[in-house]
Amino acid sequence: MSFIDEAKFLVRAGDGGNGCVSFRREKFVPKGGPDGGDGGAGGSVYLVASARLTSLLDFKYRSHFIAEKGVPGRGRKMHGRNGEDCLVKVPVGSVIRDAESNEILADLVHDGQRFLAARGGMGGKGNVHFASATNRAPRTATKGKPGEEFWLRIELKLLADVGLIGLPNAGKSTLLTRLTAATPKVADYPFTTLSPQLGVLFLPGQGSCTIADIPGLIEDAHRGAGLGHTFLRHVERTRLLIQVIDAAPLAGDPLEQYHMLERELGLYQQDLIQRPRLVVLNKIDLLAGPAEDAGAETAGTSLPELERRFARANIPVIPVSALGGQGLDKLVEVIARHLVQPAASEEDDDPEAGL
């Protein structure tokens, strides 16, 4: 199934029905007078947030949402029927903008939350309203008002408890499959994940949390490089960020990977730097062990040496192997601790408890 997180669409409310010009004509009822009824109001277009939707796929096949027109009034003071409202379901986390000005009109973050996107036109008045002492047979009625019409833009920002970020091929998708029941595409080439993937992690004794695998970032992603802004916005609403660092010997300097991710987050949105973050050293199964630490040239950088380098920079890390499963229990424990109580307020001596 395709993942679509941006779309442009038209909303058009229904026009109000026209008022009626009519006169009462009954046998044995002289001078019946006007009895034209009012027109019905046009239907409105509402956007309704639904937790059951996770993509804007429906907008790929439909881009015009039109409410029903109001029915004109009739004689005998009969009011025309109001037009039916048009309800458009959108995923929770949808941001609605004016397509021309790009102004944010609504931010739908709760299941069932509604936004009036286009208001229906009022119905016209029948001639019964225009009778007076000097005009007892008015032949005047008003037309219904036109409904509002707008072009809107919708963008989806995923609502997830935890966001996995990292360079392409850092092992985020593999980590997601080991922590949750999600089945993202996993392969040994960069940009395997081209759209955010969601999974549910069950925390011992605490219920569950949602984890989002954000496609790989590259340098200058804040300017739109690579997948850039298309998916960086999905980290804006996560409660906890996990920076997945590729610790494999041939993947480049892990510390430099960390600093690059920090730069991109800060340049994209400064308050992301204030968000609780965990640093995960992945693929430790490819590193040399303590006994091989002396043979750095043949065995590659060892895990103890990497931990010492990050410690000198005052950066707590959690070593894991998503493929082999090492360190995942510790990672789940730390995630649970952060989600129950924000890292900023924890009084814990464990360096892996927060940043």
Rank of each mutant, 00 (worst) to 15 (best):
D107H: 01
G32R: 14
V317W: 02
V320E: 04
L159E: 00
C86V: 02
Q206L: 15
G112Y: 00
A221C: 10
L158T: 08
H259D: 12
L286R: 09
L56N: 03
G19C: 05
D188L: 08
S94T: 15
P138R: 07
D350V: 06
V280P: 12
G70A: 01
E84P: 10
R178S: 07
H222I: 09
D15I: 02
A299Q: 15
A212G: 07
G120E: 07
L10R: 11
Q341I: 14
L105P: 04
F115R: 02
S63V: 02
Q113T: 06
Y61C: 07
A99G: 00
D253E: 09
Y268I: 01
G295W: 12
S345F: 11
G14F: 06
K31G: 15
R277Y: 09
L164T: 01
L250A: 02
L152R: 03
R309C: 04
A343F: 14
G120D: 04
D220I: 10
Q326S: 06
Q274F: 03
L227G: 05
D350I: 08
W151G: 02
K31R: 15
L10E: 01
A225Q: 11
M122E: 07
L232G: 09
G205R: 13
I165N: 08
Q269C: 04
I318F: 11
G325P: 07
V71M: 12
L217G: 06
Y46D: 05
E264K: 11
E236Q: 10
A99F: 09
